[in-house]
Design a protein around this nucleic acid. Structure first.
Length: 484
RNA sequence: GCGGAAGUAGCUCAAUUGGUAGAGCGAUAGCCUUCCAAGCUAUAGGUUGCGAGUUCGAGACUCGUCUUCCGCUCCA
């Protein structure tokens, strides 16, 4: 597995130096696992976000619509989704080996060494304690049975502590009595789609199969916060939940696996940089799941997940809310009768926007040695697809006199309404080209003395570094076409 | 959270056994006028992460603290 830590570090440095990504609150020594997007990073991120949105809601299917649900949701949402129960695992540390265990894993492993009847009794006891969140009880259970750490072999344990996946905050202007006002910041955007399933289906007269897409922030406390924007406490997801007739989930799962891979390939990234990773151990809501992994400089890592979520979410929301999450399918089945009422099944595609930014950066970043025997030379270039580049066109008068800046500024005025341009008249032309390479600008146009005579300019291409002469009045069209 | 390493200008690094912080690149302004970085001149940038202690004197030594990196632990 490729694991190029140096390249990864170089990309992080480059991101900071050229205004893509900064550590959060850096002047106060930073905030762990939180990052800010700078002037170029925010453009890059926005372009990726826009491309995904357009692909989902316009290009791929005619039956996908978008929503923008709030980050705050009713607390019961997270009971129904399983987040409250499934992602608040109590943990315990061995003081000698410093090894950390999930309490349930530790006890289950111990139970496996016991005779069947004893094992069942122990597990039942554990379940009861977990359910009532009796941490002291769990600890005494572990100590009474003298469960040992496999590393140190001792039973010298810390107290049982809770792992908080979700961020809590207070709802309401007045600081109140604890839990009544407590809400969570959503740990995933999907639930905003599920709770609005009926709203969208009815108001949009949507017919199954159809999809609801959403892009938004989500928040999770990670145990280890590292690996740059790959693992952040505040991050952005691009999710689409596709509602289908029960029994068709296999074919739709395959359809979306394939469709999403096509999207990835459309970024110009070669197929061998991707692989599917099927989940052997499925999450509590899924009957099939896989990840699309990209070969980052630190190895293959998950960028997108595709999950067959069954009717788990809608069924649970129906149970907790007492509202029917059903769809009436009037289409006639093989027996000549309508399919009738059912809770739809769901195929989810969920891609991390920040991870996609990281992926696009990793793919684009290149250090090139352009040296000749006479003269060493190198450049750092970000070879973004033009449609994703933060700046599309560099406009550079060769000299800042003889009327060249005036012509250049006319071109700038013409183009800047259509796409982002960068105007610069300082320094040698080569240096200006290299600066544009470093932020991934795909095209530069240079205005020189010949421009005054025949209204042509030099266009210089980022990737090949080749130049050609084109009419000044074709610049805007050429760029607009290239970034479409 | 634990263990290890490291924090000096925007970046990369220097500073003899403790003697009062410097270079290259970059940036800014000007010169030059040149189609692929490193031509010339000038300028700006540091309470050496922060706080204490030892000392006549600390970037350097001691303690604490914060942050980052590497490894372990966990991850829908």
């Amino acid at each position: 597995m490729a694991n190029d830590t140096n390249k990864f570090q170089a990309i992080i440095s480059h991101c900071k130096e050229y205004g893509f990504i900064f550590p959060s609150s850096e002047i106060y020594d930073g905030l762990s696992a939180v990052y800010d997007y700078g002037q170029n990073g925010s453009e890059l991120k926005k372009n990726i976000r826009d491309y995904w949105w357009k692909w989902m809601t316009q290009l791929q299917e005619e039956n996908i619509v978008g929503i923008d649900a709030a980050i705050f949701m009713h607390p019961t949402t997270w009971k129904a989704s399983g987040h409250v129960d499934n992602f608040s695992d109590p943990m315990i540390d061995n003081k000698d080996s410093k090894k950390r265990y999930r309490v349930d894993h530790l006890i289950e492993a111990f139970a496996d060494t016991l005779p069947e009847a004893e094992k069942e009794a122990l597990l039942a006891e554990m379940e009861a304690l977990l359910k009532t969140e009796d941490f002291a009880g769990l600890k005494s259970l572990i100590e009474a049975r003298k469960m040992k750490c496999s590393v140190s072999g001792t039973a010298n344990w810390t107290d049982v502590r809770q792992f908080n996946l979700m961020f809590k905050t207070e709802f309401g202007a007045v600081s109140g009595e604890a839990d009544d006002n407590m809400v969570y910041l959503r740990p995933e955007t999907a639930q905003g789609i599920f709770v609005n399933f009926l709203n969208v289906q009815k108001s949009g007269r949507m017919k199954i199969p159809f999809g609801i897409a959403q892009i938004g922030k989500a928040f999770r406390n990670e145990i280890v916060a590292r690996q740059f924007i790959f693992r952040m406490r505040e991050f952005e997801q691009m999710e689409m939940q596709f509602f289908i007739r029960p029994g068709t989930q296999k074919e739709w799962y395959e359809y979306w696996k394939n469709a999403r891979m096509q999207w990835h390939l459309s970024l110009g990234i070669p197929a061998e940089k991707y692989k599917f990773h099927d989940h052997a151990k499925l999450a509590h809501y899924a009957d099939a799941a896989c990840d699309i992994e990209y070969n980052f400089p630190i190895g293959f890592k998950e960028v997108e997940g595709i999950h067959s979520r069954t009717d788990f979410d809608l069924r649970n929301h129906q149970e907790y809310s007492k509202k029917k999450m059903q769809y009436f399918d009037a289409e006639l089945g093989p027996d000549g009768k309508p399919y009738g009422n059912y809770i739809p099944y769901v195929i989810e595609t969920s891609i991390g926007l920040d991870r996609t930014v990281m992926m696009v950066l990793s793919e684009a970043y290149e250090e090139q040695d352009l040296g000749t025997p006479e003269k060493p030379d190198s450049r750092v270039v970000l070879r973004f697809p033009p449609k994703l580049a933060p700046v599309k066109l560099g406009i550079l008068p060769l000299m800042k006199k003889d009327g060249l800046p005036e012509i250049a500024r006319e071109l700038l005025a013409e183009c800047r309404a259509s796409f982002r341009c960068f105007y610069e008249e300082k320094d040698a032309i080569g240096k200006r080209y290299r600066r544009q390479d470093a932020i991934g600008t795909p095209f530069c146009v240079t205005i020189d003395h010949q421009t005054k005579e025949d209204r042509t300019v030099t266009i210089r291409y980022r990737d090949s570094m080749e130049q050609e002469r084109i009419p000044l009045d074709q610049v805007k069209n050429l760029i607009a076409k290239a970034i479409d």
